[in-house]
Design a protein around this nucleic acid. Structure first.
Length: 272
DNA sequence: AGTTAAACCTGGTTGC
DNA sequence: TGCAACCAGGTTTAAC
C-alpha cells in the first residue's frame, strides 16, 4: 500500500489522538520484518509524544522509553480503536493506551515495528540514514534535484523508487509523476535536462499533494485510522490502466517491467 | 561503486 | 470446480 501520502494520512490520524497518551499494554502477533528489539513490558507506563514521519516511516516517541519506528510495508495499515475487538489473523501489533489501541494490520508482514532509544540511535538511525530529501522540503530545489539526478545512470523510474534522492514516491506515484512531467520512465536520470528536472519535481509534489488531499490510494489493504479507503486510485492517469486510453492523447497506456516492478506510461506523451 | 536480482509473506485474480 | 501461475502501495540483503 503505503507510499508517502498514505503514511502521512495515517500519521495525521493518530498523532493528535495519541499525543500524551499513556501506554497500558503491548501485544505482539506474528513476526514482522524485524523483531521489536525490546521487552514490551519496558514500554508500559511511558507517554506517547508527537508522532512524526520520515519518508514512509513513522516515529512514535515514548518519552523515557525511547520510541518506535513503524513501517507499513506493502499491505500494512494502522487503526485507532476505542474498544479493541479481538485481534484477527493479520493483527500483529497492539499498543494499548488510555486513549485507545493503536493496531497494526499487515497481511503480508513486510511492515515493521522496531524499538530504538532515540530516532537518531540504532536501529532507527541506520534505517533512516539512506533516505533522500523530503519532497516538500523547501531546501530541495530544482537545481539540487537536477544535480542529484546527474549522478545517476539508472532509469529515472528506478531512481524515484529507490528513494535515496527524494523519498515518498512508490510505484503508483512514481508512474503518475513521470506521466505528469511527460518523461519516459526508462530515461536515464543523468540525461534529464535542468528544465525537465524542475518539471519532474513539480509533478512529484503535485501528485503527492493531490493524493494526500484524496486520502491516499486504496488498491486492496490500505485504510486510514478510521477504516476509510483512499480515493486517489480512481483518478490515476496511467497506474493500473494498461491498454486503456491515455487521458491526454487517447492512445493506449503501456505496461513494462522495470526492476521487477510494473511501470505504466504513455509512449506518446512521455518522451526520452 | 553502482545497478540489478532475490528474498521476505499472504491472498486475490487469471488462465488452463 | 481445481489448481497452478502470476500479480500486488516496499526495501533490505546478497550477488553481478
Amino acid at each position: 500500500m503505503p507510499e508517502l501520502p498514505e503514511v502521512e494520512v495515517t500519521r495525521r490520524g493518530i498523532a493528535p489522538a495519541l499525543l500524551g497518551a499513556r501506554v497500558r499494554s503491548v501485544r505482539l502477533g506474528k513476526p514482522l520484518r524485524w523483531p521489536l528489539g525490546a521487552d514490551p513490558a519496558t514500554l508500559v507506563g511511558s507517554r506517547v509524544g508527537d508522532v512524526t514521519r520520515r519518508g514512509k516511516y513513522l516515529w512514535l516517541p515514548l518519552d523515557a522509553a525511547g520510541g518506535l519506528l513503524l513501517h507499513l510495508g506493502m499491505s500494512g495499515s494502522l487503526a485507532l480503536l476505542q474498544s479493541a475487538p479481538p485481534h484477527g489473523p493479520h493483527d500483529h501489533f497492539d499498543l494499548t493506551t488510555d486513549r485507545g489501541t493503536l493496531r497494526l494490520n499487515d497481511p503480508r508482514r513486510f511492515g515493521a515495528v522496531v524499538w530504538a532509544p532515540a530516532i537518531d540511535a540504532n536501529p532507527a538511525a541506520t534505517l533512516l540514514a539512506r533516505l533522500g530529501a523530503e519532497p516538500f522540503d523547501p531546501a530541495l530545489t530544482p537545481a539540487g534535484f537536477h544535480a542529484a539526478l546527474q549522478l545517476r545512470r539508472a532509469p529515472i523510474k528506478a531512481v524515484l523508487l529507490a528513494g535515496d534522492v527524494v523519498v515518498g514516491a512508490g510505484n503508483i506515484y512514481a508512474c503518475e509523476a513521470l506521466f505528469q512531467a511527460g518523461i519516459h520512465p526508462a530515461l536515464r536520470a543523468d540525461r534529464i535536462s535542468r528544465p525537465r528536472a524542475e518539471r519532474l519535481l513539480g509533478a512529484l509534489r503535485a501528485t503527492l499533494a493531490r493524493a494526500l488531499d484524496l486520502g491516499g490510494s486504496t488498491l486492496r489493504d490500505f485504510t486510514d485510522v478510521h477504516g476509510m479507503s483512499g480515493a486517489y486510485q480512481t483518478s490515476a492517469a496511467v497506474y493500473g490502466r494498461e491498454g486503456q486510453a491515455c487521458p491526454r492523447c487517447g492512445g493506449a497506456v503501456r505496461r513494462v517491467v522495470q526492476g521487477q516492478r510494473s511501470t505504466f506510461f504513455c509512449p506518446v506523451c512521455q518522451r526520452r
